[in-house]
Structure formats: structure tokens, C-alpha cells
Simulated assay, not measured.
Amino acid sequence: MSAGTRRLPAGTTDPAEGSQRPDRLLRHAGTASRLALGGLLALAPLIDVVGLGGSPVFLLVGLLLGLPHGAVDHLVPAWLSARARPLSARVTLLVSYAAVAGAGLAAFRAAPALALVGFLTVSVVHFGTADEAFHAERDGRPVRPRVAAVVAYGGLPVVLPLALWRDHVDPLLAAVAPRAPALLTTEVRALALATVLGAVAVTMIRDVNAGRVGDAVQPALLAALFGTVPPSLAVGAYFAAWHSGRHVARLLRHDPRNAADLRAGRVGPPLRRFARQAAPPTVVAVGALLALVAWPGHRVDPLPATVAVLAALTLPHAVLVAWTDRREPGLRRPTG
């Protein structure tokens, strides 16, 4: 090796070399998510005719199917930083994660309407930055979210149902927090919708000008989906097939034990490894939720209980993902 040659960490390739083409795994994950939601959008007329999609069961199923995407949060820091590998660092992470989640649950008990509005706001930021990070990592670019793109990608699955499907959404909001619909006035929803649509236009134009025509189509797909498919079905499908599926693909790349398999084009072993890692936390979360809704003498409605638990877990999850994105994993490319 010459004196001027850098030695790269095991399982990575040179950023200059890797940025020449998109990452295969993330490219395929993006295609799969577009096909899933595109297929649902194609069925929208049939869904409308037969009256499917209005039941909150679809939302509950989608939320539960997407739950495992955050189940390995406690492992991610150690994958990306040697400082997070000692036992003391892992214990600190778990305690901090539980504390933040507990604070979220307490907020839902103390002020459910404000907590729900806060959860929706956090969701906009989290969904938007997740898609921006996904695209950057897929292309081998540094993760530097654009404000307009974050508002576009994050606002479409949250704001469009609130603004366009009020008769469907408000009963769900009221089931979680009775005063929440009153906080989201007509004026607030209209302003939020105008802001999101403006951000969508800016994002699509920027992507077209940058030569990313495929990315430019995605906000239009999401807008069509959330504008025509009942929100319970649309949000459930989006959370499971789009947001969670793309995040799992990123996680597979971040686990250093998957590097050799992904370089060879093998996705099965990494997926099985992820399933083993995610299973225990997911079982615990689902078990706690079942206890909440089925405990004799203290039963609660499954929908508000699920939303409260998911909201409580979303805040520490979003913080951890933001930390991950700041490490610019788009420059770490274990696949060809």
C-alpha cells in the first residue's frame, strides 16, 4: 500500500467509488415501497366502491406491522460508534430511551390533546427527515435534509388526512384525545395544507433540476394516495410498507455483520438476523399493549392505547434516528 493510500474500515468502500451508483439494497427497497403504495392507489376506485378502508383496524394493523422497525434502536449506536459499545454506555442508552418514552406516556395522560398535536408535529419531522436520509444514503450523499423536502415528505402522510378527510380522521383523533379536533381548527388545517403543497412543488422542481426524476415522482404518488384512499388504510399501508420498510433497509446496511452478505447480494441472512434482533423488543411492546387493552377491570380502547404507546416510543426513536443521520451514513457503503 502506498503512503498516500487510505486504509478503509472493514466492510466499507471508498465514498468516491460508492457514490458513482445508487446502493442496490436501498434502491430495491425504494422500488418495493413505491410499488406497494402504487398498487394500493390503483385499487382506490375499487376500495371506494366496496366501502373498504374506513375501519381503524387497517390503521392498527399497519402500526403493529411497522413496530419492529424501531425495535433494534438499542443496537444502532454500537454499530456506528465504538464509544457506544461498553456496557455502561448501553445501559445509559436503555435508561434514557425508557425515560423519554415514559415522559411521552405521562404527557398523554396529563394533556392528551396537546400531546397528540405534538406527536403529529414530531411525526412530520421524523417522516420527512427519514425519506431525505434514505435518498441521501441510497445515492452515497451526505445526509443533509432540505427543509422543503422534510415538510413535503413528512407533511403528506400527516397533513393531507387531517385536511382532506376530516369526517374520517376527527373521530379517530377524538378517540385518542377528545379535545384534539377542536385544537386543529379549519384555519390551522388549511394553512398546513397550503404549506405542504408548496413544499411539494419546491421539492419536485428541485429534484427534476438535479436529475432525480424518479424522486420527483414520489411526492406526487404520496399526495395521490392520501388524497384518494381512506386515511386508516393509507396511513397504515404507508407506515408499514414505506416508512418502516425503508428504515429496515437502512438498518440492514448499518449492522456491520451484514456487510459481506450485502456485498454478495444476499439479503436473506441479514433479514433473518434483523428478525431475531427485533423479535424480543417487539414481543415485549405488543405484550404490554395487549395487557393494557385486555387487563380485567382496566380495559382500554385499543386505538388510543396503541397510539399512546407508539407516540411514546416515537420520540426517543426519532432522536436516535436523528443522531444516526448526523453521522452521515450516506458515505458508508457496504454494498456495491
Rank of each mutant, 00 (worst) to 15 (best):
M1W: 06
S2P: 15
T5L: 14
T13W: 13
G18V: 05
G18A: 15
S19K: 12
R21H: 14
P22S: 13
D23V: 00
L26V: 07
R34T: 02
I47E: 05
V49P: 00
V49Q: 10
V49I: 14
G51P: 09
V61C: 01
L67I: 00
A78N: 01
A78F: 00
R85S: 13
R85T: 11
R85V: 15
V95Y: 09
S96P: 07
A98V: 06
A98K: 06
G102C: 07
G104A: 08
A107G: 13
A107L: 15
A107P: 02
R109V: 12
L114Y: 06
L116E: 03
L120T: 07
T121G: 12
V122D: 05
H126W: 00
A130N: 13
D131Y: 11
A136W: 04
A136Q: 08
R144P: 11
R146L: 14
V158Q: 11
P161N: 09
R166K: 12
H168D: 15
V169D: 06
D170W: 03
V176K: 05
A177Y: 01
P178I: 01
R179V: 01
A180K: 03
A180Q: 05
P181N: 12
A182C: 02
A182N: 03
L184R: 04
L184D: 06
L184N: 04
T186V: 14
E187S: 12
V196M: 05
G198H: 03
I205Q: 14
D207E: 15
D207H: 12
G211T: 08
V213N: 04
Q218F: 12
T228F: 05
P230E: 11
P231H: 13
P231W: 11
S232D: 14
A234Y: 07
A237I: 07
A240R: 06
A240I: 05
W242L: 07
W242Y: 15
H243T: 04
A249P: 01
R263S: 10
G265R: 04
G268R: 14
G268N: 04
G268M: 10
Q277K: 07
P281N: 10
T282C: 03
V284W: 12
L289H: 09
P296E: 11
D301C: 02
A312P: 02
A318T: 09
A318C: 12
A322Y: 02
R327N: 12
R327G: 12
T335G: 14
G336Q: 08
